[in-house]
Design a protein around this nucleic acid. Sequence first.
DNA 1: ATACGTGCAAAGTATTTGCAAACGG
DNA 2: CCGTTTGCAAATACTTTGCACGTAT
Lengths: 153, 153
Amino acid sequence: MAGTRATRTSWREHTLATLADAGYRRGGARNAVVELLDREDCALTAQEIDDRLRADGRGVGRASVYRILELLTELRLVQRIDVGQGVARYERHLPDGDHHHHLVCDSCGQIEPFEDPALEQAIERVSRTLSFAVDDHDVVLHGACSDCRDAAA
Amino acid sequence: MAGTRATRTSWREHTLATLADAGYRRGGARNAVVELLDREDCALTAQEIDDRLRADGRGVGRASVYRILELLTELRLVQRIDVGQGVARYERHLPDGDHHHHLVCDSCGQIEPFEDPALEQAIERVSRTLSFAVDDHDVVLHGACSDCRDAAA
DNA sequence: ATACGTGCAAAGTATTTGCAAACGG
DNA sequence: CCGTTTGCAAATACTTTGCACGTAT
């Protein structure tokens, strides 16, 4: 059914609808952030979001970026990810199928997404055995990207 | 063989030996931090480490705590973990067998460890398929602990 | 004796908060 | 119009750095 064409109902639409349902008004800054995140595939820092919006000519206060991200995170519309660099990153929270995780190069800081259904399955399975009600997860793999690996050799 | 009695060669011993081999001198603050981490099973923040040492009567400058943790992390003797609360946590880096991951309650902030061999396996398997040279990983499961879950109902 | 290790205080970043003005419904 | 959303500036929180002193080898 609808599931197979989930990409048609964009994250942006879903997000705006959820916000409206939850009684939030439509604001320019929020729209701008949602639109930006909708275009991006992988996790951005608050700084990066601010910078890109500014570059787009749609300057938004730094504080607003944080407030908006906090709200969206609470509503589970974006996922906050911490890859261990002391900065939070944010990306669209996608439904289970479209899930990805992150590979972090500890030398150069580069971040790359990857996905693996078997891994998702293992996580779901163990989640069911725990006392917590698990509703989200994230996996971070640390290592050296191919460039840094070669450089080290 | 030795593997089954790995707990006998304590992490503390291994750590001190590695530091010595790497040419580091023995310092009081470093010993205190290593000793503390050896006693603790799960991830602590720099603040918590500082507080406990102070409570033990072995005050150590905050800066030293950070510097020591940084050093130990570099040598892969401790693992830095970020569960998404904007604070870094640190714990002993144990060999593959003794690995655990973390469950975070997003309501009360409580953190609990869990382990699952199947999950480890899935991670190892996918790691081999990637272009990165993966040498570490961590998994964070978010949700509600049983207390918060009941409270919410 | 000579570096390395440590502690204090100051500096940096990332993030949050208070408040007045702008804006949507 | 009224209350939410926004932007600025100030505050806070965590972490890092500079420098003088202590200490292991």
